[in-house]
Nucleic acid binder design. Structure first.
Lengths: 156, 156
DNA sequence: GCACCCCGGTTGATACATCAACCCAGTTGA
DNA sequence: TCAACTGGGTTGATGTATCAACCGGGGTGC
């Protein structure tokens, strides 16, 4: 059977797409707005939040980041004047931050459309969504199993 | 039409898969072998090369890395005894490097199978291959166009 | 010859990601 | 009450990725 060959070919093709597509988009984003992917993710989430502010923990849950990663990133972004940290771990967009995320949204959206949305058919988009959901579900399954192993509470 | 919604949903699902799948695999690889993805890629390519050695430029072409990225990475790997750099930019696997890549191959292959190959049907694998190839082709197209713009040689 | 450029490689600076260690406040439970 | 634990947040160290600047040799054209 050729299943192994198919898996290997699919994996290699996927890796190429992953590296090149993300490299291109993040490079275009950075060159036209000065924002990194990490900057973009933070600002995007903040702009979606009511009042342009959110608790650190909300950002962490939304992005699924390590706490230290978020802390370092927020410190750098505060240094560049994109956000402010008010008392009690609340993060808030500055005017400069609002300005930059607006420009970045347009740039990012255009790049995603050009290199991704416009290239694929509706069937392919649906197929990729299903593929992604299945893989993510499998990852979550295994995490749950590991967690259950480490702390066997559910088995009475 | 719902095309926009489909693109957005597919993009978000794909991003989740990309982040979580790669995070999981590289974490498992690192925890069980001490090798990063970058280490793995280099050692993998070297083991494929005849004699376990290759010129720097061959690695750069195979991996599509920046020259400075490769230089830094090779320096660190030489420091850890995974490779040696002989005269004239030739890189060679050490015994320790051979040992580690063998273990890493098994770990990496198992993870790819568990979280990717075993989760998807043959049709899905074929669909993902097609999707990836199309996106990569589009990226290459745009690169060629940009390059042609910068150095308009082909147009007489 | 010589000025010029290209290209492979190195280096340093900076940003980003991860791990481990720590601080502190709120809970829990003896 | 007080000790132990938990969880959010910070910090420092290290490894990784990218950009810009530089070095050196090998063409190319004059």
């Amino acid at each position: 059977m050729s299943a192994t060959a198919d898996v290997s070919a699919a994996w290699q093709a996927y890796q190429r797409m992953r590296l090149q597509l993300n490299g291109r988009i993040s490079r275009e984003l950075y060159r036209s707005t000065g924002l990194s992917e990490a900057d973009f993710d933070i600002l995007f989430l903040l702009e979606e939040s009511p009042g342009g502010s959110a608790r650190s923990i909300a950002l962490r849950c939304g992005l699924e980041w390590e706490k230290s990663r978020l802390s370092h990133q927020l410190r750098r972004m505060q240094g560049r004047g994109l956000i402010t940290k008010t008392a009690d771990a609340v993060v808030e967009l500055t005017d400069k931050g609002r300005e930059q995320i607006a420009a970045a949204r347009a740039c990012h959206g255009a790049a995603v459309r050009r290199y991704f949305g416009d290239v694929l058919t509706d069937d392919q988009l649906a197929a990729l969504t299903a593929i992604s959901d299945q893989v993510v579900a499998r990852l979550a399954d295994d995490s749950a199993r590991d967690h259950a192993h480490a702390q066997p509470r559910a088995e009475a």
